[in-house]
Simulated scan of single mutants.
Amino acid sequence: MNQETREVTAPAEQLDTPIRNFSLLLSPTPRGARLARLLATEQLRTWGLPSQPAEQIVAELAANAVTHGRVSGRDFRLTLHVVGAALRIEVTGTRGDRLPYAQEVAPDGESGRGLLLVDALADRWGVAHGPTPRKTVWAEVEFRVTGSRPSPRRCPTDRPGA
């Protein structure tokens, strides 16, 4: 496992807001996807950020990379960027020819809901191409500061009727 972590100070006008970065390569296996979720959760805890909804987003994107983007012998990359009150989650895989899309799923279907969950939990998400043969699926979550600890901008339990 290759891990790179760095913390960089923002430009002069944002000196009180650090830029945080965490990136590592993981094996394209169910174990690698699980490890992505666990390590992301631990890194967010270290940074003093809430783990939800980011933990679930990482779990879904990593599972998709392992299930739909796997190429034998090629790892996938998990990257977390925090700039100010925004967290960007990126999962880079080696199957740029297979683009993700949210799909309707039968009520009794056993899979296919991952991107629907990402869409519901993230403020934004999308796909960045390249360099060939790679693609990066990313999701962003913005936090609001309440007291001394940031909290997610929205949470599934905040919705009416939940």
Rank of each mutant, 00 (worst) to 15 (best):
residue 52 Q to R: 15
residue 51 S to N: 07
residue 125 W to A: 10
residue 21 N to H: 12
residue 65 A to G: 08
residue 28 P to Q: 03
residue 105 V to T: 15
residue 105 V to S: 14
residue 121 L to R: 03
residue 32 G to K: 12
residue 59 A to P: 07
residue 15 L to D: 01
residue 9 T to E: 10
residue 53 P to T: 14
residue 61 L to C: 02
residue 4 E to M: 12
residue 43 Q to V: 01
residue 18 P to K: 10
residue 113 R to M: 11
residue 90 E to H: 05
residue 131 P to W: 08
residue 54 A to Q: 11
residue 99 L to H: 04
residue 84 G to W: 00
residue 40 A to I: 05
residue 37 R to V: 08
residue 92 T to L: 08
residue 80 L to S: 02
residue 117 L to K: 09
residue 68 H to W: 14
residue 128 A to F: 01
residue 89 I to D: 02
residue 137 V to D: 08
residue 82 V to K: 05
residue 17 T to S: 07
residue 23 S to C: 13
residue 25 L to I: 06
residue 10 A to T: 07
residue 38 L to V: 12
residue 28 P to V: 04
residue 58 V to Q: 04
residue 145 V to H: 09
residue 152 P to H: 09
residue 13 E to S: 06
residue 33 A to S: 09
residue 72 S to Y: 04
residue 8 V to Y: 03
residue 107 P to C: 02
residue 45 R to E: 15
residue 72 S to V: 15
residue 114 G to Y: 12
residue 90 E to W: 07
residue 113 R to N: 11
residue 127 V to Q: 04
residue 152 P to C: 08
residue 119 D to K: 12
residue 112 G to N: 10
residue 49 L to Y: 13
residue 37 R to S: 07
residue 65 A to S: 09
residue 97 D to G: 01
residue 106 A to L: 12
residue 138 W to R: 01
residue 41 T to C: 04
residue 38 L to R: 11
residue 139 A to Q: 11
residue 64 N to T: 11
residue 52 Q to M: 15
residue 48 G to I: 06
residue 38 L to H: 10
residue 101 Y to L: 06
residue 155 C to W: 15
residue 3 Q to T: 10
residue 156 P to W: 10
residue 11 P to L: 03
residue 75 D to R: 06
residue 30 P to R: 09
residue 50 P to L: 09
residue 135 K to M: 15
residue 54 A to V: 14
residue 13 E to G: 01
residue 146 T to A: 15
residue 125 W to C: 13
residue 31 R to V: 11
residue 54 A to D: 05
residue 79 T to H: 10
residue 136 T to A: 13
residue 29 T to F: 03
residue 57 I to D: 11
residue 127 V to K: 01
